[in-house]
Amino acid sequence: MIEVENLTKRYRDRVAIDALNFTVAKGEILGFLGPNGAGKSTTMKILTGFLPPTSGRAKIAGFDIFENPLEAKRRIGYLPETPPLYPEMSVRGYLAFVARLKGLGGAKVKSEIDRVCAAVGLVPEIDRLILNLSKGYRQRVGIAQALLGDPPLLILDEPTEGLDPKQRAEVLGMIKGLGGRHTVILSTHILPEVKAICEKVLIIHRGKIVAHDAIGAAAFEQGLDETFIRLTAE
């Protein structure tokens, strides 16, 4: 589903990510880990076509995100680090706007809004202004927006940020349910979340991949927490 080759991003003299190489298979749920500033968000921004890479390439379902951006973007649902919400719009109005931009039309817009709102538990809030929603609900609107149009690939940058423990469990359960049919990449700081739902883990540190393996593999034998701390120590 995702093929990344020598992906590099430099900001002036600072190297954000350095020659990343990895692939993600269809239906996989990949936990994307790393300390703050390791390059997680940068990688996600490149994969979704928001930032151009300095060099290297990334393919989504066979489409180069840079050479064929529209085809690649059609297959991605993306939740950025900050949910991209318009506070002055209602939840329904906002989701209808995003659905139309994703190319949905007519009756499909309404049925998709109903579907994603049910999936993230937004139905009672659907006619409220985003301005008036709590942080947890705003995060859910962000996730709902990514799910619109049922894209085969979901890229979620810290999807459980700002949620309380109960909401966290709900959202994680939902993401786990997406596996198999959808490919999911999620970044997080919270290691137990990764253990709970991910099949594979990719750890990056200072822009380089330091581990990429199945969660039960030998690399993580000492436990994910230990491994994470050891690999990102220096």
């Binding site: 076509g49 973007k73 900050t82 995003v98 994703k102 190319g103």
Partner: peptide, 10 residues
């Protein structure tokens, strides 16, 4: 940061 939405939809 809604610009990120506009640039990641097709």
């Amino acid at each position: 940061k809604t610009i990120e939405l506009l640039f990641t939809v097709p």
